[in-house]
């Protein structure tokens, strides 16, 4: 399994199938029991400054009194020792200007300029997610790892965040590995999917992986994949009925998407 620059790959599978674990291997924070991982031309963990990483499900408490802009900026220099307060003058002043310009650019890339000055706790879930993507982008990474960036967002916001990720990877030829429960918002943009289940993985284009045959074989129980007229995929006969994304977040007035997960 390999990824090319600029490729958009989704990592799918049930809870506990090892999606987040795989991201940690790519980051080098977990080592493989067997096999090797090469990341950006070296062993995993050595090129982390060229990786933008968005951890799973973070939301900022409403009372968090830090601007979105500051959160994005921490992605740029938060790991550098020293004081977060810039001192004026000379070379430092120049670096400060460059930092500010880079942060503003990343914020503009995700279209968050209008609310970046607000305390992040007062931004909506979708706004927070965009700012966090800006934080992952601010160092101009070559590889973007997004762990369930669409989780706990409503459907229109899921669609707009998916479109944003696609736009960014096309503009900057950045490879994107995105963990998801539901492949549907990503369908128009994906190059490939990797499906993890029962300790096995299948990779390939969506239409070759998300099929009744492949999923039945992977899960070891009969699974049926239906295709709606608009192209959305509906998976029926999921092996572990509860513990699914949409079950946790289902609100009143479900519109048929409730079963549209993979």
């Amino acid at each position: 399994m390999a990824m090319a620059p600029g490729e958009f790959v989704a990592l799918l599978g049930a809870n506990g199938s090892g999606k987040s674990t795989l991201l940690k291997v790519v980051l080098g924070s977990l080592s493989l029991a067997a096999g090797t991982a090469q990341v950006l031309g070296g062993p995993a963990g050595e090129a982390n400054s060229a990786i933008g990483y968005l951890p799973q499900r973070r939301s900022f408490d409403q009372s968090t009194r830090i601007r979105g802009l500051d959160i994005v900026r921490l992605g740029l220099d938060g790991d550098r020792w020293g004081v977060p307060v810039g001192l004026p003058g000379g070379r430092r002043g120049e670096r400060r200007r460059a930092t500010r310009a880079r942060v503003a650019e990343a914020v503009a890339m995700v279209g968050a300029t209008a609310y970046a000055e607000r305390p992040i706790g007062q931004c909506s879930g979708g706004e927070q997610q965009r700012l966090l993507i800006a934080q992952a982008l601010v160092r101009r990474p070559e590889l973007l790892l997004l762990d369930e960036p669409l989780d706990s967002l409503d459907l229109p916001t899921q669609a707009s965040v998916a479109a944003l990720v696609d736009e960014i990877r096309r503009e900057s030829a950045m490879a994107v590995l995105l963990v998801a429960h539901d492949v549907n918002p990503l369908l128009p943009y994906l190059d490939r999917v990797v499906y993890l289940a029962g300790g096995h993985a299948v990779e390939g284009p969506v239409e070759q992986v998300i099929t009744s045959d492949v999923l039945t074989r992977l899960h070891g129980v009969p699974v049926e994949v239906l295709r709606a007229s608009d192209g959305r995929l509906v998976v029926v006969g999921q092996p572990e009925p509860p513990a699914h994304h949409h079950d946790r977040h289902a609100g009143p007035g479900g519109d048929g998407h409730s079963h549209a997960y993979v």
């Binding site: 980051l27 924070s29 982390n48 990483y53 968005l54 951890p55 799973q56 973070r58 900022f60 968090t64 830090i66 959160i71 921490l74 992605g75 220099d77 938060g78 790991d79 550098r80 020792w81 020293g82 004081v83 977060p84 307060v85 966090l132 934080q135 992952a136």
Partner: peptide, 23 residues
């Protein structure tokens, strides 16, 4: 505090990302 202020701020508001960044 002056020496660790920035990583401390990062670790305080966003510990997971900070840890992934090697803080």
């Amino acid at each position: 505090l002056a020496a660790i202020a920035r990583p401390l701020l990062f670790a305080s508001v966003d510990p997971d990302t900070a840890a992934a960044r090697g803080v």
